[in-house]
Design a protein around this nucleic acid. Structure first.
Length: 628
RNA sequence: GCCGGUGUAGCUCAGUGGUAGAGCACACGACUCAUAAUCGUGCUGUCCGGAGUUCGACUCUCCGCACCGGCACCA
């Protein structure tokens, strides 16, 4: 028996899951289910990454201990996967004992390989920035270009992994295994990264506390990214379940979005090489989702409202749309109207209606499924197409071409509709033609059983509904023609995808709620805090672009008593000329900053959501008027 | 500014060095078992622009234009 081990990334719990996570996970789910239907022994991993400085910080802001915070966030992910009908075999948390033990074993092995070394990390550090100031920004005075404060020279000891040593072996591996990184565009990208040379990477942090300490130096915490990669082995039981680990490692597919391929295709394999373990077979990256042409962005309010669409069209329609409409590997644009079209055209009209018409004819003319006694024209054609569809489907799945896979299945669905049409079954109810009618209906129903098996990885609920209506009591996953038993009692046939008219929900866009403000009590500020702000009315007297910056404008603002130079990030929304003469609200007592070598003394207030709109007084007021 | 992607029928997108494709939408016809469904037929294209390589380019190369994304920048 073949084994198939597929993983999603473990998702970072410092925010809530979005449609991108859902896509990665659904795609992986399809592969897992597909291999199960084929009879492979499948292990499907997903989970969450709960460690690291970011989680620590977010937890602190929420007034929670890190573990408490994770315990609150993680169920949001597991509940979503449940709603999306994800069939994972394990949901890994990196705070679990299993993971921690496996990670330590891995780290020890890595250390023993000799490719981990300790080295000082040093540089000029700016405390307010919380960063090392890069060489190129340094001046002779050694002051922070932003804060104009003296920099500190800091030396920190870190552990490094000798990534550079594996450059040639990685290169060779990628060349020898053309499908190792998929699709090709990613592969080329990483080859060019390799060409420009790899540097050793730091794998520990001594300033972070929320994480797993290095077994060989408990003062240090593993860098969260490095720790996360190890989950693919710890989830199998690398330390805790030897049998399962040996059954499934190496992974067949690491599925992910295209932005994290570097870690998976270069660093992870190199780490595995260092400790002499087999590499995953394939690193597979899909594209990003956009919404009506724009990149998803929580802050800009560009989000995909999965809940609404799933509520309107059902989960399977949502899954179907994502899988059918997007060409894997490329970015795909999510459009509710397209989902609607797909729903009606493919699901309601083609598939749903086919099932319905066949069941209707059966119920009207037969008591249970009749035996196929009377072969005739078109029968073989349909039978053959059923078989070739299975083969084509397999090829498409191997290439992660879910859109083509579904298209192939639907070509068959349409063929069956045509079969019903060509044979004009409904005219055969007379006694002398009834056996032929029975045969055609048997074939049509068998075709539908076939379809239900083929679609079950993609839209599992629908597959089950179809088989239930056909009268099968247990889900049949075999895709061989002629398995459908006779005399099954078919159901009346409730439409599995009732048509949905667009008119009704024409207007439902408003959805007042913007990016939801968590009105946490902890976010309240005191009146005294508010009073610290000195807001005043000013008049823009000049505006000009700043070279080399797409979003910045240099403004001169007249505050009545003085003139100020302010840099504002509004160039994408306002032409300089259009600003002159405008009254705006200025934060006067903001500490000065230098942006792109231009000094900024204050800040202009603006509503910044989907668009950016300057805030100004309703009617003109004297310059310098205080705003409160 | 740097890096990357895309540009093919009204829409969403496939596609190949040799006379342009699918689905949806649209039009007409057939049918009436079915969810105003299904089936058939038809329809539109300077395959972004320019130059080059080639017997031949939508496909390869270069240059441009447009749009999109990432990074920098957003006090």
């Amino acid at each position: 028996m073949n084994t198939f081990y597929i993983t999603t990334p473990i998702y970072y719990v410092n925010g809530e899951p979005h449609a991108g996570h859902a896509y990665t996970t659904i795609v992986s789910d399809v592969l897992a289910r597909y291999h199960r239907v084929k009879g492979d022994q499948v292990f499907f991993l997903t989970g969450v990454d709960e460690h690291g400085a970011n989680v620590h910080k977010v937890a602190e802001n929420a007034g929670l201990a890190p573990q408490e915070y994770c315990d609150k966030m993680t169920p949001i992910f597991t509940e979503l996967w449940e709603r999306l009908n994800i069939s994972h075999d394990i949901f890994l948390r990196t705070t679990s004992d299993m993971h921690k033990r496996g990670a330590k074993k891995f780290l020890t092995a890595l250390y023993d390989s000799g490719d981990v070394y300790k080295a000082p990390y040093e540089g000029y550090y700016c405390r307010p920035c919380e960063r090392f100031v890069p060489e190129k920004e340094l001046t002779d005075e050694k002051i922070c270009p932003i804060h104009k404060l003296p920099l500190e020279w800091i030396e920190e000891e870190n552990y490094f992994f000798r990534l550079s040593k594996y450059q040639d072996r990685l290169l060779a591996h990628i060349h020898e295994n053309p499908l190792f990184i998929y699709p090709e565009s990613r592969r080329n990208e990483l080859l060019s990264v390799l060409d420009s040379g790899l540097e050793d990477i730091s794998i520990s942090r001594s300033s972070v506390s929320w994480g797993i300490s290095l077994p060989f130096d408990p003062e240090h915490i593993v860098y969260v990214w490095i720790e996360a990669l190890m989950n693919y082995m710890t989830a199998l039981g690398y330390e805790t379940d030897n049998e399962r680990y040996h059954t499934f490692w190496p992974a067949n597919v690491h599925m992910m979005a295209k932005d994290i391929t570097r870690f998976h295709a270069l660093i992870w394999p190199a780490m595995l090489m260092a400790i002499d373990l087999p590499l995953p077979k394939q690193i597979v990256a899909h594209g990003w989702l956009t919404k009506d042409g724009e990149a998803l962005s929580k802050t800009r309010g560009i989000v995909i409202d999965m809940d609404t669409d799933i509520e309107t069209y059902g989960l399977d329609a949502f899954r179907y749309y994502l899988l059918r409409e997007f060409s894997f590997g490329n970015d795909g644009d999510y459009r509710p109207t397209r989902l609607h079209e797909r729903y009606n055209a493919d699901l309601a009209n083609d598939l749903g209606n086919l099932l319905n018409r066949v069941l209707g004819l059966l119920n009207k003319n037969f008591d249970g499924i009749p035996a196929p006694t009377t072969p005739g024209e078109f029968d073989d054609e349909v039978k053959e197409m059923a078989q070739t569809t299975v083969d084509k489907l397999d090829e498409h799945i191997k290439a992660f071409a879910f859109d083509s896979a579904l298209e192939t299945i639907w070509e068959f669905v349409r063929r069956v509709n045509r079969y019903v049409q060509q044979t004009e079954v409904w005219t055969l109810a007379k006694p002398e033609t009834k056996p032929r009618m029975g045969t055609i209906l048997y074939n049509s129903l068998e075709a539908l059983r076939f379809v239900s098996v083929l679609i079950s990885p993609f839209i599992p609920e629908t597959a089950e509904k179809i088989q239930k209506q056909i009268g099968l009591t247990e889900f049949d996953t075999v895709s061989d023609w002629g398995r459908l038993p006779i005399d099954l009692k078919v159901s009346k046939g409730e439409p599995i995808f009732p048509r949905i008219d667009l008119k009704k929900e024409k207007a439902p866009q408003p959805k007042a709620a913007k990016p939801k403000q968590k009105s946490k009590e902890t976010n309240l500020i005191s009146f005294a805090d508010f009073q610290k702000l000195d807001l005043r009315i000013g008049n823009i007297i000049s505006a000009e672009p700043i070279e080399g910056a797409d979003r910045l404008l240099k403004l001169q603002v007249d505050l009545g008593t003085e003139k100020r130079q302010v840099v504002a990030g509004i160039a994408e929304h306002y032409k300089p000329d259009a600003l002159i003469g405008k009254q705006v609200i200025v934060v006067v007592n903001l500490e000065p900053a230098t942006i792109r070598n231009v000094e900024s003394h204050g800040m202009i207030l603006a509503a910044s959501g989907d668009t950016v709109v300057l805030a100004s007084p309703e009617t003109e007021v004297p310059l310098g008027t205080q705003v409160k």
